[in-house]
């Protein structure tokens, strides 16, 4: 086989694979832009006209599209920032201080990695009710924050461990307190890891389905994935395929755009999460 044939075969295989992976995403995007009347018909390759009708329908679905977008943004942005802040504080405490009970606290925090949240969802519902946070976006955000903490602490510890202690000491000689050292000296140096933590947790929160499905009992508190599935199940009896396509696109696009822009951070975070053991 000549070198040229091999190259042709190689690129043919790569393009075929690319087709398989990219097609569903492009296809739903194209179909969502068909006029609403066509969305219940068998697929045609090229839409007769482009239209935003499906997105118009979606705007009025349930409690209104913007409500769901707002819920999703609030929960995923809020929990991603909270995880980053709480994990940075904890990692600083563990890497820079020796205190009684440190070992126990450490094991306790990282042990949560071993227990998947699916196994404590039932009592979690009851705990949230007991503290008055059931069916609230705050409660859901706190649940995400708690269950994303172990990995985030692990990532921040690795990053902070690499920052030389002499920097802390130099800053303290200049009269800085512990909190100032953390905020002014260490955090800027571990900014890439901090960005990774925010990014992977935003995406995880944005995509999460089961906890949101269980903990949000009020339709107006649904996040986008729960709304999307409600549309799929056709709570009015029949499925509006056009609205479903538009909702799929809206739920997918933000995370796709983010990962394409910040792919390196995202991959780093996922790989670190996978190899933590």
């Amino acid at each position: 086989m000549s070198r040229n044939t091999a190259a042709w075969l190689y690129y043919a295989a790569c393009l075929a694979v690319t087709g398989v992976f990219v097609f569903p995403v492009l296809w739903v995007l194209i179909c969502s832009l068909r006029p609403a009347a066509e969305s219940a018909l068998p697929p045609a390759w090229i839409p007769s006209t482009l239209s935003l009708e499906n997105y118009e329908t979606l705007r009025r679905v349930g409690a209104g599209l913007w409500r769901y977008v707002g819920n999703s943004v609030a929960v995923s942005v809020g929990s991603a920032l909270a995880v980053a802040a709480v994990a940075a504080l904890a990692a600083f405490g563990f890497s820079r201080f020796r205190f009684a009970g440190r070992g126990v606290a450490f094991v306790l925090l990282l042990a949560a990695i071993m227990v998947p949240f699916q196994t404590v969802l039932t009592p979690l519902f009851i705990v949230l009710r007991a503290v008055g946070l059931h069916n609230t976006l705050l409660g859901l955000g706190i649940v995400y924050t708690t269950f994303h903490l172990p990995l985030a602490i692990f990532l921040m510890l690795t990053a902070m461990g690499a920052v030389p202690r002499t920097l802390d000491e130099a800053a303290m000689l200049d009269g800085a307190g512990a909190l100032t050292v953390l905020l002014r000296v260490i955090l800027p140096l571990v900014a890439p890891s901090l960005a990774t933590v925010v990014l992977i947790n935003f995406i995880a929160g944005w995509n999460e389905f089961l906890a949101a499905l269980i903990l949000m009992t009020d339709q107006s508190n649904y996040t986008l994935p729960v709304m999307l599935v409600t549309v799929t199940f056709g709570y009015m009896g029949t499925v509006d395929w056009g609205a479903l396509q538009a909702a799929t696109v809206l739920t997918m696009l933000p995370v796709l755009a983010l990962t394409l822009c910040f792919q390196r951070y995202y991959v780093q975070g996922l790989v670190a999460g996978a190899t933590k053991g």
Partner: peptide, 20 residues
């Protein structure tokens, strides 16, 4: 002082992980 820094993480873990 270390306790103060790990306290928020511990509090969340105790209430929303250990309790459940």
């Amino acid at each position: 002082l270390g306790w103060l820094f790990v306290a928020p993480a511990l509090l969340l873990t105790c209430v929303f992980f250990l309790w459940p």
